[in-house]
Design a protein around this nucleic acid. Structure first.
Lengths: 221, 221
DNA sequence: TGAAAAGTGTAACAGCTGTTACAATTCGGT
DNA sequence: ACCGAATTGTAACAGCTGTTACACTTTTCA
């Protein structure tokens, strides 16, 4: 476990023995979960720090009408709900569910606070993590603010295109992407179809080939 | 100044003499600004912690097409861009501009880090501030995810209605509200007109009277 | 007080998206 | 290799929003 944890952002810069030494001083436990388990409901109080050790989680916002917007997918060894452990109302902003079997390390809030005070590097890491979180949410807002589906697709693809590869691997299916974009699945498929007919890209299962990056860029103006 | 600062979230729980004592140990300075000054551009690096002492700021996201989305308005003695001081890419997520003359206390990042280590209460306050920030952004996402303008208006008004007052004071004009909602001004006005004709509310300059809260609530289902 | 600026109400139209439904294709497990 | 499930493609239609333009009202400030 400590080898996983040493790669975790919260323990960045610490050697496994150092991590072990810290964890001895801080009560903690392991929580196992299974695929499709609902680990937390939006609005529920966040009482523990959680570090994902194995498996895959997703956070999803569901509004009153039942529309769901997938905010993020979490993979080990990320912290879960890091930005929501402190603050006036420390409540889950999303429904947290498991996409695969796994386990996580959980530390009660007061114990976690103690952990932060035990090692300055951990504290600094935590500051960085919640800041990254805020930045992530902020980028999310700016992304969701794109008016059209064309713009969202263009932005999404160009983000991954920078590296110069014409082919962009897709880790998610259209349904999942549509949820991340906050749009309906058939609407996404329609726009993809249009972009293909215009010769801008070719969307296959599992990957997209950018055939005309210039036109794609021009969508974002 | 220290009396203002003692009401600031970052110095919560500290007496003015204690604050003074801390500030003596931490280099800082005052930055004055005028109405409509552009204090920071989105993408610019955040190099200092900023505490607003006087005046009013706004943070606005502007996308490639020039659409702007007002994220928040800041009043003293709040911290500015608190969630963006640390993290991998500490960059402004918004254009920061002054809505009124004012001044702020600025502390260079390394000095601010030192301040955090000097007093545990300040550190704890800061953790709470960025967590609140993350929660704010998260609520913003969930708000922007409402599909229709009707829903946004309903949610916005019901937030302020809880206290039982039928009349809700409006601190912003329609243009400003439309920017917060991420919609066009005439579209907002149109929907307001519809809601009025349906007898649900009466929208006057500076205030809204809720005439039928039940129907308003039913919009959010 | 009067003129300019800011704010608000309204309309018509085009464009985009959600919804629903179904067909076609591909995938996964046996 | 087969079958059921999951994924993707497509269509028609209704509904909502953005755009643009202009009239009207209120506020601001000289």
């Amino acid at each position: 476990m400590n080898t996983i944890l040493s790669q975790s952002p919260i323990f960045k810069g610490l050697q496994p023995p150092e991590i072990e030494n810290l964890l001895v001083q801080v009560p903690h436990q392991i929580r196992h979960f299974h695929k499709d388990d609902l680990l937390a409901v939006a609005g529920e109080e966040v009482k523990t720090a959680m570090i994902l050790l194995e498996g895959k989680l997703q956070g999803e916002m569901v509004d009153f009408s039942g529309n769901s917007l997938k905010i993020e997918e979490l993979i080990p060894p990320q912290m879960v709900a890091a930005g929501f452990l402190f603050g006036k109302k420390s409540r889950f902003p999303v429904n947290l569910s498991a996409m695969a079997d796994g386990e996580m390390l959980i530390i009660l809030k007061p114990n976690f606070t103690r952990l932060l005070s035990l090692d300055n590097r951990v504290l600094n890491n935590f500051l960085n993590i919640i800041s990254d979180k805020a930045q992530f949410l902020s980028r999310k807002i700016s992304f969701l603010n794109f008016k059209t589906i064309r713009e969202k697709i263009a932005f999404f693809l160009l983000q991954h295109y920078k590296s110069g590869f014409r082919n962009i691997p897709l880790k998610q299916n259209q349904q999942s992407l549509a949820e991340m974009f906050g749009v309906a699945r058939p609407s996404l498929a329609r726009t993809i179809g249009e972009l293909q007919r215009e010769g801008i890209l070719e969307w296959r299962r599992g990957e997209v080939e950018i055939k005309n990056a210039e036109v794609l860029k021009s969508i974002l103006q």
